[in-house]
Computed example of a mutant assay.
Amino acid sequence: MEKDILNNSIDRSWIDQLTKPLVISGPCSAESEQQILETARKLNNSYIQVFRAGIWKPRTKPNNFEGIGKEGLKWLNKVKKNTGLMVSTEVANSEHVKLALSFDIDILWIGARTTASPFTIQEIADALVERNDQIILVKNPIHPDIELWIGALERLFVKGIRKLGVIHRGFYTYNNPKYRNQPNWNLLLNFRDILPNIPVICDPSHICGNKEGILDIAKKAYHYFQYDGLMIESHCNPDSAWSDAQQQITPEYLLEMLKKLINVDKIHKNKKSLNSLRILIDELDENIITLLSERMNISKKLGSLKKLSDISVLQPNRWKNIMNKYLTLGKNLGVSEVLLEGVFKLLHQESIKIQNE
């Protein structure tokens, strides 16, 4: 499919009619009717338009809580009637879709694991035939694959869905000390270059995996990258949550956060551009530091193995071959030879020092 056809046919009316940024909030999982209704009542509908709760939870390992199931849809329906909030939940197969629609759920979102499976996306798209007015949000796949993400949108589009949006929940990277899921802001900019018309919602809860970083990520998304909305997990008693307790906040704290985000003076366009570029560089620098730590840990193991095998720490021929290989790679990528020589000499010296300890 031509991406211009998809981009130009997106129906943004459902989000453009809002006078404030779209905010979707509620617990990671529906646990009880009382928990759902109490959380919903505490959300301020001057700032939050949509209540969310996971009914079916795709977990990494078995024997964990995997959602309350169909019963939770009744609770969401009560939230809708009692509070006037729109309601939303995640769907992962055609049966979920049919059940959610039978309970008049306003917004369905497709999770990261599901987005990564074209067969499952097709099953969901087929279940949405003749539901052209349904709002569907598609989370990014776990790994940074733009074409896979766009492919999911195209499958839904072909079946007549026009009220589409995406949720940026970050991307899996092994052993990241700062994030549960790396933001990879630059990938999102590339995505928006391809599909600039599609609404983009940021999910700071899943990017951070903790309460402490949510405001910072939300600020970057809203102020500097001009996202259309936020999805933030909230719970009436986060510490007792059955899933992802560490990344859920109270409705009261959420309101404080949203006031700080929304009720501020607009940032000048040039400053916004400057800060967004600095954020991209900061993320790359954080990745470099993480990789350096991993590299030094491997150097320690290498030093121990060389001692056991009575091998000299310094290997001049290998060092020469490495430098030639990396200088050639750098030249192909447009990286200064002087810069690469300086960086790798420092890395080599530190590695030799560690191996000799």
Score class of each variant (00 low, 15 high):
3 K>L: 15
5 I>V: 14
7 N>I: 03
8 N>C: 04
12 R>G: 05
19 T>V: 08
19 T>S: 14
26 G>F: 11
26 G>M: 11
27 P>E: 00
27 P>T: 03
27 P>V: 03
31 E>C: 00
31 E>A: 04
33 E>Q: 15
34 Q>N: 12
36 I>F: 01
39 T>D: 08
52 R>P: 11
56 W>Y: 15
58 P>W: 08
60 T>Y: 04
61 K>V: 12
62 P>S: 07
63 N>C: 04
64 N>H: 14
67 G>A: 03
77 N>E: 15
79 V>E: 00
80 K>P: 03
82 N>M: 10
88 S>I: 02
88 S>Q: 06
90 E>N: 01
91 V>P: 03
101 L>W: 03
103 F>E: 14
103 F>C: 04
103 F>K: 11
104 D>H: 13
111 G>M: 01
115 T>G: 05
115 T>W: 02
117 S>F: 03
118 P>T: 00
118 P>C: 01
120 T>Q: 12
121 I>N: 03
124 I>P: 06
129 V>I: 14
130 E>T: 04
134 Q>L: 02
137 L>Y: 05
138 V>A: 09
138 V>R: 04
139 K>I: 07
150 I>M: 08
150 I>A: 05
151 G>Q: 02
152 A>I: 07
155 R>P: 00
155 R>M: 14
156 L>M: 01
156 L>V: 01
157 F>R: 03
158 V>E: 15
161 I>A: 01
162 R>H: 12
163 K>N: 11
174 Y>I: 09
182 Q>T: 13
182 Q>S: 14
182 Q>A: 14
184 N>Q: 09
196 P>R: 05
197 N>Y: 04
199 P>H: 07
199 P>V: 07
200 V>N: 10
201 I>A: 02
202 C>F: 11
210 N>Y: 12
215 L>I: 08
215 L>A: 13
216 D>V: 08
218 A>W: 10
220 K>C: 07
223 H>F: 11
225 F>Q: 04
226 Q>N: 13
228 D>H: 15
229 G>N: 10
232 I>W: 01
233 E>A: 01
239 D>Y: 05
245 A>T: 00
247 Q>F: 06
252 E>C: 03
256 E>V: 04
260 K>L: 13
265 D>C: 02
268 H>E: 15
271 K>C: 03
271 K>I: 09
273 S>F: 10
274 L>D: 14
275 N>F: 13
279 I>A: 13
285 D>F: 13
286 E>V: 00
289 I>G: 01
299 S>W: 00
301 K>M: 10
304 S>V: 04
306 K>A: 00
312 S>E: 14
317 N>R: 07
323 M>A: 12
323 M>Q: 11
327 L>S: 06
328 T>H: 11
330 G>M: 04
332 N>D: 13
333 L>K: 15
334 G>F: 12
336 S>L: 09
336 S>P: 01
338 V>H: 05
342 G>M: 06
342 G>W: 04
342 G>F: 07
344 F>M: 12
346 L>H: 08
351 S>E: 15
354 I>E: 12
356 N>Y: 08
357 E>N: 15
